[in-house]
Simulated assay, not measured.
Amino acid sequence: MKFHKILLIVSILCMFHVITYANENNSLTINTITVEGNSEMSIAPNQATIQIGITTSANDAGEAETKNNQIANQIQKALEYIGTNKKEIKTTQYNFYPIYNNQENNHHEIIAYTVSNTLSITSSDLSKVGTIIDVGVKNGATNINSINFTVKDNDNIKNTALVAAIENAKAKADIIAKTINKKIVNVVAVKENNVYFQPSTISRYALMKSESFDSTAPSINPDNIKVNANVEIIFEIQ
């Protein structure tokens, strides 16, 4: 019985200690400022992806498909001949659809079939982009949909952009703290919002408007790629 009374007293004392500790912690106030940091880099691309389109039509569905496959195979062989790795050539789109008679009383009459195929060629040799386009067109491609210039193995670039964004945030925080007669004493939280790579793209329209499809391979000069990073940091100040 005596033991139970002692245990009860100890329990009450422990509860009192916990409540006191919680109240003491709640009385602490941390002064903070929240700052966004941004960075922007401009880097040269080291990889290109060319989208080559092949469109064929015929009265017979099988004939339209056969013609399209023949052109695609011919382009692929020609690309491999100039040194393009077979693994760098992929089919990204393949569409098959009928063409209907446009006359008012013949809405459901099929008069032909069209097959549309897109080959995607990735190259780390930017000097070969014009040659790849030239090979595609000379071997039956009906259009070049687009060329996207990107950066492969971009982890180091991402890290550099993040460091620059963090430094930008710290510089802003220093200015704010000094202006209100405070100083930064700690970092409470850091949030990475995004790191965005804006590829350099040449659209189909731009390619068709240029004089790319003459007797010589076109000269393609890509713009630099923009890399933007954004972070949010909460600083403790005193």
Rank of each mutant, 00 (worst) to 15 (best):
H4S: 14
K5Q: 08
S11P: 00
S11H: 07
S11N: 06
H17G: 09
H17C: 12
Y21H: 13
A22I: 10
A22V: 11
N26M: 14
I30A: 11
N31S: 10
N31Q: 08
N31L: 07
T32G: 02
T32Y: 10
I33P: 00
E36S: 05
N38S: 07
S39T: 04
E40L: 15
M41D: 04
M41K: 12
S42E: 15
A44T: 12
P45A: 05
N46E: 01
Q47K: 14
T49G: 03
I50F: 01
I50P: 00
Q51Y: 09
Q51T: 06
I52Y: 03
T55K: 13
S57I: 04
S57M: 11
A58K: 11
A58W: 04
A58E: 07
A58F: 04
A58H: 10
N59I: 11
D60N: 10
D60Q: 08
E63K: 12
A64Y: 02
E65D: 11
T66D: 12
K67G: 00
K67L: 13
N69G: 06
I71P: 02
I71W: 03
I71G: 03
Q74I: 00
A78F: 07
Y81L: 15
G83Y: 05
T84I: 15
T84Y: 02
K87V: 02
I89P: 01
K90E: 07
T91K: 11
T92E: 08
Q93R: 10
Y94C: 04
Y97G: 03
N101C: 06
N101I: 05
Q103G: 10
E104S: 13
E104R: 13
N105T: 12
N106I: 08
H108D: 14
H108T: 14
E109L: 13
I110F: 04
I111Q: 04
I111Y: 03
I111A: 03
A112Y: 05
T114S: 13
T118V: 14
I121E: 00
S124N: 13
D125V: 06
D125T: 09
S127L: 10
S127V: 05
D134M: 08
N139I: 08
G140L: 07
N145P: 01
N145Y: 06
S146C: 11
S146Q: 14
F149M: 07
F149D: 04
T150A: 11
V151K: 15
V151H: 10
K152I: 15
K152W: 07
I157Y: 06
N159Q: 14
T160D: 12
T160C: 02
L162G: 03
L162R: 09
I166M: 09
I166S: 07
N168L: 04
N168Y: 03
A171K: 10
I176G: 01
I176K: 09
A177Y: 03
A177W: 04
K178G: 05
K182I: 05
I184A: 04
I184Y: 01
N186D: 13
V187M: 08
A189P: 01
K191H: 11
E192W: 01
N194K: 11
V195K: 01
V195W: 00
V195R: 00
V195L: 02
F197P: 00
S203V: 12
S203G: 12
Y205D: 14
S210R: 09
S210Y: 08
F213K: 15
S215N: 15
T216A: 12
S219V: 15
I225D: 00
K226I: 14
N230W: 01
N230C: 07
V231D: 03
V231W: 02
I233C: 00
I237R: 02
Q238G: 06
Q238R: 09
